[in-house]
Structures are given as C-alpha cells and as structure tokens.
Amino acid sequence: MSLQEYRGVMVVAEQKNNKIHSTTYELLNWGRGLADKLDCGLYCAVLGNNVQELDELIFRGADRVYHVSSPCLENFLARPYAAALARLVEEEKPEIVVAAATTTGRTIMPMAAARLETGLTADCTGLDIDPVERILLQTRPAIGGNIMATIKTPFTRPQMATVRPRSARQAARDTARRGEIVAKHYDGALFSTPENFLAFVKDTTQDVNIQDADIIVAGGKGMKNREGFKLVEELASLLGAGVGASRDAVDLGWVPYSHQVGLSGKTVAPKIYIALGISGKIQHLAGMQTSEYIVAVNKDPEAQIFKVADLGIVGDALEVVPQLIDQLKSIKANA
C-alpha cells in the first residue's frame, strides 16, 4: 500500500429516513479542521436512497459530496451500507475516514475497516494531526472514561475513526460556500444480503433521545419509588431535557433500559447533567463524567457523585426537586 496515494478527509454522513442528521455537521466541523491542517479536500459520503438537501453539507464545510444512492439503501442494513462505504473508499482513497459513533457508525466502520484491512479507533473524543508525521492522532476514553489513550494508524490507509456525538460543535453554516455533488451508482450485486428490514418502532418512552440531549435529568435509587421517579420526568419535561437513570432505577423497573446511563447503558456528554438521588457508582460515572456541567443532588455528603459535580446540593432529592419544579412553573407562568 502506498500511503501517498491516499489524500483528503472523508466524513460519513449520518442520516435517518434519508434526511441528514445534525450529527453530520459535527463530523464536518471535525473534518474541516483536519483537512485545513493537512491542506487537502473535505469529502462527505452520503449513503442512502435519494437523500435530500445535500447542498447543506457544502454550506457546512464539505468540498465534495459523494452520494451513493440505491433503493437497497432505503433502510439500514449493515452489509449493504458497509459494502457501499468500502467501495467508495477504495475508489476515492481518502487518507482519513471519520464517522459518528452511533449504532450505524459503530456497525459499518468496523466492517469497512476489516474489508480494507486498516486501523479503526472507536468512540474518539479528540482528533488532531501530527504535523511532522502528517498522521491522524485519535484520542479516546477507555475503561469507562478513566483513562484516555491517543492512537495512530501509521502503516495503512485510510486512518479510520468513529467520534462520539456531541464531542464537537456543529460546523457553522455559510450559504456562500461552493462545492461539488457527485452521484455514485453501484451495481445492485454490491448490496445483496439475505436479511430483510421489517420495521422501525419508535421508543415512545423517550421523547428526547438522551444521546442527542443538551440537558439530561437523571434519577437513581434516591427517588425511592416509581412515584418519586416521576419527579425526574416532570423536571426533565419542564427543562426540555432527556430522562436518564442509574442502573438501580432501571433494575427496579421505574424506567426502561433505554434510559440507563453508565458502563452497561449509554454514554452521554450533555451540556448539563442533573443527577438526582444517584450515589455515583463508578459504572454510572463512566457514562456521564465528561458532561460539560454536572449538578448533583444527594442526601449523602460523601456520595461519589459529588466528586465529579460542579454544583452539589446535599439534601433529599424528593424535597429539592418539587421546590425546583414549583419555581420553574412560576417562572414559566410569569414569562
């Protein structure tokens, strides 16, 4: 493999129902930074069926958009998507490929990396260029965020990484930007796979997807029972926040698993994380300690959660939260 043959930074657009998801603009922000440091082009790979509003990707920083469009990509299936991505990379030879660390990215990137026999680093929170080696430096948390590791891919191309959603701002929009949109049509055989997509079922318990949320209000055992946990949900709804939970609250059946934050649940990094009645076992901290600002309410002044909190309130969440809810309601009423 001649490393010099590979040039340019490619980001893989995140789409849902053939509409671009805003996580893509975070990827373009990462990608633009890397491409400028390398003095090369920024490409955006769009996999789907007639994905709309591709100009937006150019406004957000892409120099060229490759749209691999096929009815076989109407719904997400791992093999057709991974095959399309690997083919596009083989043709266009970018030196770096970055996707979001979502259920899609975390599925197709490993498959493409295996096919391309190159290195892939999961769930990065930092990407940079080593100017001397002209190589990608990928920084990721490991062991539940307790250790950070910087990883490189020195001998093979492309250098591949998935990046954690919300680890960068969305790229600014500039409608004066110009770029190129290239349609890619591949033979249907490339997409052939024996499985059938049957249905998507929306999670109705989750108004706000916690991994997308700017604010998360999370509750733990300190909420005492299902009734108590409703306060968490009420506060979240007043703040337009996602509802998170500790493992205890999930195991007690107060809230479904899709809300669980931590080592065996979801990793989140919102702007504000409000932990209510959560003691802060290391498994929970692992899933939320990179949040921008952390508020914790707990009766026990020695609770571990206060070790990672910016603002801690030593008190019973069952007393504090109703007061907070009352205040917020009166603020809203007077607004």
Partner: peptide, 23 residues
C-alpha cells in the same frame, strides 16, 4: 495490528465542586 497506542493519560476529572446544603 494497524493501530498503535501513542500515549495513555489520565483525564482531569476532578472539578471545583461547589457544595451547598438544602437547609
């Protein structure tokens, strides 16, 4: 293995916690 670990470090997690009492 195509990837190499360049360095491992501890993230700075300890925050300047402001602790208040619900009194």
């Amino acid at each position: 293995s195509p990837t190499r670990v360049v360095k491992v470090f501890s993230p700075k997690l300890a925050r300047n916690t402001r602790l208040l009492k619900q009194d």
